[in-house]
Structures are given as structure tokens and as C-alpha cells.
Amino acid sequence: MNLFRLGGDLLHVFSIFVLTLKIKTSKNVAGISLRTQQLYLLVFCTRYLDLLFTNPFRSGLTMYNTVFKILFIASSAYIVYLMRKKYKQTYSVKDDTFRVEFLIVPACLAGTLFHYRNTFFEIVWAFSIYMESVAIIPQLYLLQKTGEVENLTSHYIACLGGYRALYLLNWVWRFFTEPRYRHWIEWIAGTIQTALYADFFYYYFLNKTKGQKLKLP
């Protein structure tokens, strides 16, 4: 455990909190991609299959991981519920149209071909890493289509990008401090995932310095 990772995890939780706050305060889910949220739910459910066989009391880190894993699955399931049931009428159904098959199928292929070990859990785990790296795309697509988003929605995406950036720093840190740290799958997928936010960040900061709502050209 290092400060970059701890900061990344906390920022990840905070981003989900910001999103829930946006939905609860505005009582609408306009501008939020249900497709991205469902992909995240899929990512967490496939990534954290080990919850089924890991003893959470094994160590302090196991307990820490277990709490966060349950939190991520539960919170993303809750957001999907809010979007599909409670605030269904406000959902941007006409604009949230990115074809997720174009993301899921390649992630399945990549997981099947490139993994650490040839076991079911390892293949599913690798799939979840590849899936997460591109899961934000429907959200960015929706953002581009609508052109303007509410502040809290843009903060949510910014927090997610920040969490990714901290995880990259965490890997750099671990690379130099742990001699046997060679996690190439995380490196590749994580770099792609973080890079996807670059364009968004450019406009986010441009609009923040002007003190305006996020508007895309």
C-alpha cells in the first residue's frame, strides 16, 4: 500500500459519491450514460469474483480490499437502479447510443488471448481489466453529443480521471520499490484508460478557469 494507491481508491469512491449526489440533488440522470454505468457494474462483478472464495479476515489488506469491492459493486448497482427505475423518465435515452458490443467483444477476445494464467478466474479477471479501460467511452460519447453537462457530472468524470492517474503513479512507485512487480496487463490497460481522459481534461480545465459549465466544441 502506498499513498498513490490509497488516494486513487478514495478518489474512486468519491467520484461515485459525486455521481450519486448529482442524481439525488437534481432528481434526474440526464447526461449520465447508463451504458457506461452498466459496464462498470459488469467490470466489478467479474473483477471481484474472488469475493466468493477469499477469507476477508486473512489480512488487513484483504479486509481493506473486501470492503472496497463490496462498496463498488453495491454503489454501481444502486446507480443502475436509480437510472433504470427511479429516474427513468429523465434518462438521455436518445443520446446514449454508443454500441457497447464494440467494447465488450474486443474485451472478451483480449481477455481470452492475453492473461497471466490459463484459468477461468484469470481470464475473467483479465477481461474485467480490458473492459474497465474502455468503459468510459459511452459516457464521453454522450458528453460529446449533448455538448454541455452539469457541473457535478463533469466533476464525476474528472474524479474518475484523477483516480486513474493516481493508479498509474502507484504502478510507477511499485515498479521501483517492489523488485518483482511486473504487471504488464495493468500497465497497458491502465495507460489506455487514463489516456482516454486527456481530451476531456483539456476542456474541463479550460471551462473551469473560465468558471463556466463544461461545454464541448
Binding site: 474472488d50 472464495f53 480490499n65 469491492k69 478466474f121 479477471w125
Partner: peptide, 10 residues
Amino acid sequence: MLYETLHDEL
């Protein structure tokens, strides 16, 4: 090797 040794992150 334990599953957790390889996957100790979130």
C-alpha cells in the same frame, strides 16, 4: 501462488 498475491489491487 495465492490468487491474492497476484491481484492485490482493486
